[in-house]
């Protein structure tokens, strides 16, 4: 079995979000970078678990990014995976990114392609669906559990107000979220091994950008909290009803 895990570099969940150049650019100064949590905690760890059960499994990691993405892909390799591919380009356009990964997938013929349900920076939730359409494979979104027996995967996915269990034969593209696996911490052996794992750098395929970010904005600051005494709950209800018109 051959698995591709898509890895994205994102700012840490506690990073202060600010913009430079009059809102044109994300302010990178002082920002800690991490593996997108959905890519790391769920897709990558699940792929590693599948390899632990079946050591013949091959795991490739792929990221689309410049040289500054290398520490992130090395960190992912320290958790697990056999080799990594970095496609040497960057973009905020999901289609451009997905088309780069689909080009790799077209030659490598993976049985499973895992993505996170979204990245925590652009919140596009699009890469998995686009790759699936480009390689013409079934797509299972928002998975909360992934099991495989032979070439048949049994996947639980989130639907509105509940979950649905589906079965599908590989190849399949799956976007993962909480429930698929549990977060792991890389150990020293993994970190040492990651240094010598192959990291291939590919130049990007000629693909189109369909969108571009014009500018960023921060939300308007809150006016400040109105405190109500716990002995005067009727006043809170009145404010919610008359002032906020929320109930």
């Amino acid at each position: 079995m051959k698995i591709l895990v898509c890895i994205s570099k994102t700012p840490d969940t506690t990073a202060k979000i600010a913009f430079a150049d009059g809102g044109k650019k994300f302010e990178e100064a002082g920002v800690q970078w991490i593996i997108n949590p959905y890519d790391e905690w769920y897709s990558l760890v699940r792929a590693i678990e599948l390899k632990e059960k079946d050591p013949a499994t091959i795991i490739h990691l792929v990221t689309v990014g410049g040289a500054d993405a290398e520490p992130i892909i090395r960190k992912a390799l320290a958790l697990g995976g056999d080799e990594a591919i970095r496609i040497n380009t960057d973009s905020s356009d999901s289609f451009y990114i997905a088309a780069q990964i689909a080009a790799v997938a077209a030659t490598e013929k993976y049985d499973i392609i895992f993505t996170g349900k979204e990245t925590i920076d652009y919140n596009g939730a699009s890469i998995g669906g686009m790759i699936a359409a480009l390689v013409d494979a079934p797509y299972i979104s928002l998975a909360t559990s992934f099991l495989i027996e032979g070439s048949t995967a049994t996947i639980t996915r989130e639907i509105e107000g509940g979950e649905e269990v589906v079965t599908v034969n590989t190849p399949v593209v799956v976007s993962c979220q909480k429930g698929v696996a549990e977060q792991r911490i890389p150990n020293m052996r993994g970190i040492m091994a990651a240094r010598t794992k192959p990291l291939k750098v590919l130049e990007p395929a000629a693909e189109e950008h369909l969108t571009s970010i014009e500018s960023f904005e921060l939300p308007a600051p809150k006016a400040g909290v109105k405190l109500v005494s716990p002995d005067n709950i009727d006043e809170l209800v009145r404010l919610l009803h008359e002032e906020a018109k929320a109930i």
Binding site: A99, A125, M130, S141, T211
Partner: peptide, 24 residues
């Protein structure tokens, strides 16, 4: 809608039509 179904299909439609997509 950017609900569970929308998240499952709009990206694929975007890729097939090569139509630029903004989610959310």
């Amino acid at each position: 809608s950017h609900n569970q179904t929308g998240k499952a299909v709009c990206a694929g439609v975007s890729a097939l039509l090569k139509a630029g997509l903004v989610t959310g």
